[in-house]
Each structure stands twice: as C-alpha cells, then as structure tokens.
C-alpha cells in the first residue's frame, strides 16, 4: 500500500486525529511517520498489528532518541505479507521520570530492545516483565546516550 492509502486507512480508525494529537508526516524521511501521544500508543500498535489490511507483524527496529528537550522512542514496523513500512514516534517532555507503555505483549522482540532503551536513556516501560539494565553494570550511575551525559573519568573527549 502506498503512504497515501495507509494514511487514509489509519485516520479512518480514529474519529478526530487532531484532538488526540496524532500527526502524519512524510517530509525528511523515506517512510510515513506517525507521531502519537503516549496514552494512545498501545491501542494504536495493537490495531496496526491486528488489522488485516495493514498487518504490521514485524517490528524491526526500536530506538531511543534524545531530541534535545524531549526524550522519545522510534518504532519501525514492517508487514511480512504486504511489505510496507511505517514509522511510529512517541515523545515526552518529562526528563526526570519518562515512561511509556510496553509493546512486548504485541511483539516479543520488544522485550530486549526496551531493556536497552531503559539502560541508555532511562525511559521506563509500564508492564514490562523484566526491566533491568542490560549492557552496563547494575551500579552504573547515569544514562550514557543522553546528550547531557558527562563522564570525566572514563571518556577522553576529542
């Protein structure tokens, strides 16, 4: 399906997209980007997977991003039957205690990826079965991939 058709289909599920903060954009990217508010995230993802016309059953990339002021997560989804790709983004301004809903009940692969995002950015995921640090030791202080991370001892900056 083309990006236009996808955008029309998804907007037809929700009566008033602007009111709940759902935005579609295609500029500066190869795929259709949907920006969604944290409260609607889980419901939109479930619909994207279960609807047979979109059928996004393959989550191939889950990345955390520090946009400078906000923290966010970017999901890249693909369908194995129709072979179209879509990007879903979610952001929050809260840097002290950011949290989103988990999607690992929809796609099993999200379990490890969300642990990695928690490890590097500090974003918590509600209802995650095992949210612990993955790569760094348990006692590590701070979240390294954030833009304001400073480590005098280990890093030699060039």
């Amino acid at each position: 399906m083309t990006n236009e058709a996808l955008q029309n289909l998804i907007s037809s599920w929700i009566p008033d997209p602007i009111a709940i903060g759902l935005e579609f954009t295609e500029e500066k990217s190869q795929f259709l980007n949907i920006t969604v508010q944290p409260e609607q995230l889980h419901q939109l993802m479930t619909q994207l997977k279960s609807n047979s016309e979109t059928n996004f059953d393959y989550l191939f990339c889950l990345s955390g991003v520090d946009w400078g002021k906000e923290l966010g997560v970017v999901y890249h989804l693909e369908s194995t039957t129709h072979r179209h790709i879509i990007v879903v983004k979610v952001k929050t301004e809260d840097r002290e205690n950011p949290n989103f809903d988990t999607v690992c009940d929809i796609w099993y692969t999200a379990e490890f990826h969300e642990r990695e995002v928690f490890d590097f950015f500090g974003i918590k995921f509600n209802n995650h079965p095992n949210l612990k640090r993955l790569f760094l030791t348990e006692e590590w202080d701070g979240f390294p991939l954030r833009k304001d991370y400073v480590d005098e001892i280990n890093m030699v900056i060039k």
Binding site: L136, P144, Y149, D151, N154, M155, V156, I157, K158
Partner: peptide, 10 residues
Amino acid sequence: FFYNSYSVVK
C-alpha cells in the same frame, strides 16, 4: 576506541 568511549579500559 580510545576517544569518546565511556566503557573501554585503555
């Protein structure tokens, strides 16, 4: 991995 890495023992 000498520059800009926070986890490598030099």
